[in-house]
Design a protein around this nucleic acid. Sequence first.
RNA 1: GCCCCCAUCGUCUAGUGGCCCAGGACGCCGCCCUUUCAAGGCGGUAACGGGGAUUCGAACUCCCCUGGGGGCACCA
Length: 475
Amino acid sequence: MSDIRVRFSPAPTGMMHIGNARTALFNWLFARHTGGTFILRIEDTDVVRSTTEAVEQIQVVLRWLGLDWDEGPVLQSRRFDRYLDAAARLVEQGDAYGCYCTEDEIKARNEAARSEGKTPGYDGRCRDLTPAQRDAFVAEGRARSIRFRTPDDGRSEFVDIIRGDVSVAWATVSDFVIVRSNGTPVFFLANAVDDMEMAITHVLRGEDLIDSTHRVLALRHALGADDQPAYAHLPLILGPGGGKLSKRHGAISVEEYRDAGYLPAAFVNYLALLGWAPPDEHEVLTLDQLIAAFDLERVHQAAATFDPQKLEWLDAQHIKALPLSELTAAVLPFARERYGARLDVPVFEAAVGLAQERATNLLQIAEQAEFLFTPDDDLVIDDASWEKVLKIEKVAQILDAAIAHVESCAWTLEGIDLRAAVDALGVKARKALPVVYAAIEGKTAGLPLFDAILLLGRDSALRRLRAARLRIDPA
RNA sequence: GCCCCCAUCGUCUAGUGGCCCAGGACGCCGCCCUUUCAAGGCGGUAACGGGGAUUCGAACUCCCCUGGGGGCACCA
């Protein structure tokens, strides 16, 4: 065990965003690679937006991803007294002050500044209130927030592991709220206090937070810290076409990918490849391999665009590599949800085996196997497939030949092979077979035909073939 | 408007002054295989944003421009 301590500290305000999952993953990989401690901290200081469901959901998602934590979850909402104590201390020291401006007033002033082309930000109105002014505001019934007093000049600098020297002029950073007028502490404060108390050594987070680091660092120093954690600001994940990954780009939460049938190992593998590259050219990696290979030195600086196609490909790779029993277990929930009542597990596992080498997704496997558990009378051939079927030459004769063959053939894979029977009609098997696929599986694309027929059984196969034959020529 | 960060194929990236007229992966295109569709095999297309500077030599160093992203909340 090293003394490296990192934390993943999401705000529980909704579903787990892909970017959040990536931050969790990199923290976890870094901790596991270095033998450090991975802490889960819930930053629920915004009591209005935070929900207990989201707190639960974060843990569910982390478990699904395979990211276990060593300490926590620590809820900041249970630690308000510490943050408030710290705030009081800062006020006493003169590093912070009470502000009586209302939210609306500040918003209006910022708007005004913006429209004049000036830089928005707190204008420092309550910075140096006299006791009399203060009393007047209180008498007015105004609520008080607490603001941190940022330096008027000089620069804030820190060395980022990924970006190197980062600095900003203090003159461009206005005083910021650390305790809301409703008495609850704000992110910056809680973050600084907890990182100190939890002895966090490395902070890995999204680059969107890079500007806030200066403020947290200033708070930290004002609170008496004589050291600071190492910071690594990870490149952002952009949506296709650039810009923030948003709903407009499709699925953006981990839950959506889980429910769509992605293997967690594949999802994690893909996330790892966004902004980080393995030392050699092997990019299909298990969680353990990722841990072994992970290195902060190899994290990129430029933002990465999320590419669903590569995720899809990686999912296929991981599906192929999985032992059949594990794959079956992974697909089972999707199958149960769709046709659980009629499911026969041995047949299902055989179908999963057939689908394994061709599938890119768990849900897709469940769908490909579904025809095996659909009552013959309920089998629906989708329109697009039927359209293709009708274009096939001698389609009726092909079905007749298939029926005749299946009626009497030996009930083995070789016996069911009806290519010769179709060939005899002078139609190439590859041209002819789609109609049989459609009749048996309900669509022209699916599991290998002869295996499918074998699994389905002779009676059922014949019923389906005859139904299709009838549909072509009702007479 | 101000501040910060970034910049290699369409996308993810390798590359840390000569090994690079730039390598891999996804995608795309073509061919092969084939029980349709896939999967698989083989091959191909495609990039160092522009301009200066440093150097015997720059994808790699520095500066400017341009472009992209982020921030400027009593959200995190």
